[in-house]
């Protein structure tokens, strides 16, 4: 019971902070790039921020589900998915989409480091919770088998 609430709330808070980082805590670069036709498009980091909002939302939902579901196996599955979502959150700014080319741009200076640190915490916490639940499940099975 205690683990259910604790793990769910921690995951949900981490997800919420990931969601809020590109929105208001450390926003991505706001300036636009001028295209040859005279129009303007957002920079790459803007789209990385958008993707991270989705990642944060998924982790937040995972946290809520961890509180709702009582079954150890379901919570184990949710924790594993949250850990993998955390990995996705790390890959978005580094490999999958990326950001600006200069280290001193707001996205490279604050947004991405904050997101990477938070996603590392999600991966570490969710993996730890998954291992804990897996051991719990093993104990329950041993008890039922006699």
């Amino acid at each position: 019971m205690k683990n259910r609430f604790f793990s769910g709330i921690v995951a949900a808070v981490l997800g919420l902070v990931i969601l809020l980082v590109p929105l208001c805590i450390f926003p991505t670069c706001t300036k636009m790039i001028e295209t040859a036709s005279g129009g303007t498009v957002p920079m790459k980091c803007f789209w990385s921020g958008r993707a991270e909002i989705g990642v944060g939302l998924l982790i937040l939902c995972g946290g809520v589900l961890l509180v709702i579901f009582k079954s150890t196996l379901i919570r184990l599955g949710i924790s594993m998915m949250a850990a993998l979502t955390g990995v996705l959150g790390i890959l978005v700014p580094i490999v999958l989409i990326g950001g600006c080319k200069m280290d001193t741009m707001p996205c490279r200076m604050t947004t991405f480091p904050a997101l990477i640190v938070l996603c590392v915490l999600v991966v570490a916490f969710s993996s730890g919770n998954a291992i804990y639940l897996w051991r719990q499940n093993k104990k329950i099975q041993e008890k039922t088998n006699g």
């Binding site: 670069c29 300036k31 636009m32 790039i33 001028e34 920079m43 600006c100 080319k101 200069m102 741009m105």
Partner: peptide, 10 residues
Amino acid sequence: LNAGCCAYPL
């Protein structure tokens, strides 16, 4: 005023 690498003054 802006550059290809970044839309910030350099």
